[in-house]
Design a protein around this nucleic acid. Structure first.
Length: 606
RNA sequence: GCUGACGUAGCUCAACUGGUAGAGCAGCUGAUUUGUAAUCAGCAGGUUAAGGGUUCGAGUCCCUUCGUCAGCUCCA
């Protein structure tokens, strides 16, 4: 017998009776006309449904409006269908692939004989507007169509492998974005513009921080003096932090006989990411081949293994800010963010198994100090589990994954699982942090390794006077200095905190008559360890101020006749407009010193 | 690596369907001596990514290589 009535439960717990066959749209109308108008979709038992589908009996149903983040997915899914319809009308032979909503938009994959051109995109977008006007049934949301056509935009087309598998055929993917209002769309497009302005490749050039030179090769970074100063400050900071926590610094060769990587398991598992071997020098045996290192772990292992170790020595924490080289595929290279020459802030910890947890706690403390406290970043944790290409047995992977998970649980940390995202030698905890405009980045990583100690037969003498095998943690806090520095450029849009700024103070004499006074100010600052220089050019103050602002100098110290006579400086703080604070020079020096010492994120003078 | 687009002065960009490379900024020189986001003038700056081809003639058309960009895949 078919019931004539269904009952659904609303989010507030109340129940609503509806005639059998009622849709979510009917439900919204029954609740109220306002909601009916705002409704874009329904959530039925956790799934997003469109409004036109008949509701089942005895289910939890929520009406979604455009305020609901899930509703945007519905809109974008609809937009993807509009895109597919438009493409099919213009290119009848196009075969349709997937068309899901994604963050900020949607895409759709097509199999077409020739790739789409920018002109095609324009034609397709125009056709999409027609499709929307014609009110195709999948465009079910109850909205004003005329307005709707202004709220999506096709962005670009590019090849994409079928099902994301590079062994399969390449399809043509069209990306678009869609929003509920024209204002949202415009603000999204503005956000893209903003992100472009922060591009570290652009700012890196403008601020003269680094370059990449075709004569030398892609993915290889030249750190110019200003960028190098930032790297130096970052190194100094992290080295101070870890030396206070029982780490020891080491330096190891960049080159090794390739047998070392055979033993470590890098060959052949990691060979695709390594540069090919080179023969020893002329006249030497051809049989001896060398490789440049893509990782430091085997090197640090050899230091560990260079003498007998006691349980009392552990943990041994060997750190090296080291250059390694990885043969990243050409298409993946991207400014400082994806390079072939990497400067890792690397360390390898050799532990007893009972020390794993305390060590992970210490690492999470360092992450909090550096990323959280010093850089003011929010971050989250991923537990990345065994990949397909891996060393070792399932049993040791079980053990390693369990150990990391236990540590995270005991720490009370929340985390997500990144299935198959681990390193080939062990699972890891990846730290993902957010930048100033909400994008997610990865740098810090904590990797637990039972395999390499095994392969290198590492040992320590236990309390029982028997040999035991240590476990290893590979870890990086910044990740690589290249990527972290690229991140900092984009996060701060080039306006770095004082302690990181390559040029901390620029002294601006108003006229040539104040040049001696300005030079004296600069010398006083330099003597206090502050990076300052005088703009000696024969230009107007306006010109010099503008130049200082475009170069994102944190403080400009203006010296005119008044200041020269009074022994003061008129301080202009970056980005604060024409506000100035006149301070005795000694006081200015002290404030700057203090701001640097505390690695403050915001200026102390403004 | 794959698909597509692109490569002109240090930077940002011009140069009609092939007709002999031009501007702004930056730089240098001179004048100016400036009170919080561009003072004025002059000068210099290019084997048009590299190599080959078509043509009377190539920045422009074709081929190869290198590189860049947007994605895919991969990743710190």
């Amino acid at each position: 017998m078919v019931a004539s009535e269904i009952r659904v439960t609303l989010p507030d717990g109340s129940e609503k009776r509806l005639p059998a066959g009622a849709t979510a749209a009917d439900l919204a109308k029954a609740i109220g006309p306002g909601l009916a108008k705002a409704a874009v979709a329904a959530r039925v038992d956790g799934q997003v449904w469109d409004l036109a589908r008949p509701l089942p009996d005895r289910m939890k149903v929520a009406i979604l409006t455009d305020k609901d983040p899930q509703a945007l997915d519905v809109l974008r899914h609809s937009s993807a269908h509009v895109l597919a319809t438009a493409v099919r009308q213009l290119f009848p032979h196009a075969k349709i692939g997937f068309g899901p909503p994604i963050e900020d938009g949607f895409y759709y994959d097509f199999q077409v004989p020739t790739p789409f051109t920018p002109d095609d995109l324009e034609r397709i977008e125009a056709k999409m507007h027609e499709v929307v006007k014609a009110d195709y049934p999948f465009m079910r949301e109850e909205v004003d169509r005329a307005e709707a056509k202004r709220r999506f935009k096709l962005l670009h087309a590019a090849g994409a492998y079928w099902r994301g598998d590079e062994r399969r055929q390449m399809l043509q993917r069209i990306y678009g974005t869609a929003w509920f209002t024209k204002e949202d769309l415009e603000s999204y497009l503005r956000r893209l513009e903003e992100a472009k302005k922060r591009d570290h490749r652009l700012l890196g050039k403008q601020l003269d921080l680094f370059s990449i030179q075709e004569d030398v090769g892609p993915g290889l970074i030249f750190w110019h003096p200003k960028g190098a100063m930032m790297q130096f400050q970052l190194r100094r900071f992290i080295e101070d932090v870890i030396l206070e926590r029982g780490y020891q610094l080491v330096y190891t060769p960049h080159l090794t006989r390739e047998e070392l990587f055979l033993r470590s398991g890098h060959l052949p598992l990691y060979a695709a990411n390594q540069f090919p071997p080179m023969a020893a020098g002329e006249g030497e045996s051809e049989a001896v081949r060398y490789r440049v290192k893509p990782m430091n772990c085997p090197m640090h292992i050899l230091i560990y293994a260079s003498q007998q170790r006691s349980y009392r020595d552990l943990p041994i924490r060997l750190a090296e800010i080291a250059n390694v080289y990885r043969n990243e595929r050409s298409g993946t290279l991207h400014g400082m963010l994806r390079v072939r020459g990497l400067t890792m802030d690397d360390a390898h910890l050799f532990l007893r198994e009972d020390q794993i947890e305390q060590e992970i706690f210490q690492l999470l403390d360092i992450v909090e100090l550096v990323l959280g406290k010093t850089f003011g970043l929010s971050y989250r944790l991923d537990l990345a589990t065994r990949p397909d290409k891996k060393l070792g047995t399932d049993a040791t992977w079980d053990q390693a994954e369990r150990a990391l998970e236990q540590a995270l649980k005991h720490r009370g940390a929340t985390y997500r699982i990144d299935q198959g995202g681990g390193a080939f030698y062990g699972p890891k905890i990846d730290v993902k942090f957010n930048d100033a405009i909400g994008r997610e980045w990865q740098g810090a990583t904590i990797q637990l390794d039972f395999e390499q100690p095994e392969r290198f037969r590492l040992e320590y003498a236990g309390e029982d006077n028997k040999p035991h095998r240590p476990v290893m943690i590979h870890r990086a806090i910044y990740g690589t200095l290249e990527r972290f520095c690229g991140f900092l450029i984009e996060h701060f849009a080039g306006a770095f905190p004082l302690w990181l700024s390559p040029e901390q103070v620029r002294v601006l004499p108003i006229a040539d008559a104040q040049l001696p006074a300005a030079r004296a100010v600069q010398q006083r600052l330099a003597a206090a360890g502050i990076r300052a220089h005088v703009d000696e050019r024969s230009e107007t103050l306006n010109y010099k101020v503008r130049d200082g602002e475009t170069h994102k100098v944190p403080y400009m110290a203006v010296v005119g006749q008044r200041e020269a006579e009074a022994g003061t400086v008129a301080v202009r703080s970056r980005g604060e407009g024409n506000k100035q604070v006149v301070l005795p020079l000694a006081e200015f020096v002290e404030q700057v010193k203090e701001e640097v010492r505390t690695r403050a994120l915001t200026p102390s003078i403004r």
